[in-house]
Design a protein around this nucleic acid. Structure first.
Lengths: 129, 129
DNA sequence: ATAAAAATAATAATAATTACTATTTTTATA
DNA sequence: TATAAAAATAGTAATTATTATTATTTTTAT
């Protein structure tokens, strides 16, 4: 695999933000540095980075995937109104759950814990229901 | 909301199977009883049933959503090779995790715990990697 | 400097899902 | 039971996220 500045830029952005952007948001951001980058390049590199374990993909069921540059074991809270994802630390931690769980069905490569609800901002803005 | 036999059939199928079918698979199944049902009807009713809390949607990130007629608190194991989903009971249980976790970011309506790996069948069939 | 290998931009294609609309089904009421 | 309003459907078109294709450009080893 060769170096690519576009890939570096994608990775850098994901490492620097605490948000959990979609491919489209990443595209818009990286475009500021590389205006000619194409959305396909973003998708291809995201898949690559996920396969390498340098980035995590978060599936919320809202129709588009989100990406996370923080690969440490942590869980997520998803607001079904504003579609934002927040980091949460739970007790026991996700890796404690993983360690304690003998799934017994095959290999376990990862565990994802996702809470869903309506965030405080959306409640305050009457953006809920 | 009015009664509909198509919706009943979808729900019945989801309650009867231990699999976690996609909309397409549900469509093919319900078609045996109602050959004229359209895929749009399946999607519309699945969304409805999920909103009513009678069915759960499972997002694995494999490009299509899966549905589960078992709404009791339980977790899932997803095989990234054969794309099947299996029920798993973990310790502590998903509702114990939910109870113990003070997310503090807003309301928490649900918690989903998903393990991902390669299932035994796929390992045996060298369907892994 | 150069050539092979890999990556890209631009675009086309695919696949899952949603929207639209004329027709049919359901349901409340006479 | 007949009927009419409301809701749901089938069939189809449209949308959206994602993947595939290909000619060109970038990277890297020599």
């Amino acid at each position: 695999m060769n170096y690519s500045r576009q890939r570096e830029s994608i990775k850098e952005y994901l490492m620097s933000t605490r948000e959990h952007p979609t491919a489209e948001v990443i595209y818009q951001h990286v475009r500021e540095e590389y205006p000619k980058i194409s959305l396909g390049t973003v998708y291809r590199n995201l898949t690559l980075l996920v396969d390498l374990g340098e980035v995590k993909k978060i599936s919320t069921g809202d129709g588009t995937e989100h990406y996370d540059g923080d690969t440490s074991a942590h869980s997520h809270y998803y607001c079904r109104c504003c579609h934002r994802i927040f980091d949460v630390e739970v007790t026991p931690s996700i890796d404690q759950i993983l360690a304690a769980s003998s799934v017994g069905l095959g290999t376990v490569e990862q565990a994802a814990l996702l809470f869903t609800g309506v965030c405080k901002d959306c409640i305050n803005n009457d953006n809920n229901v």
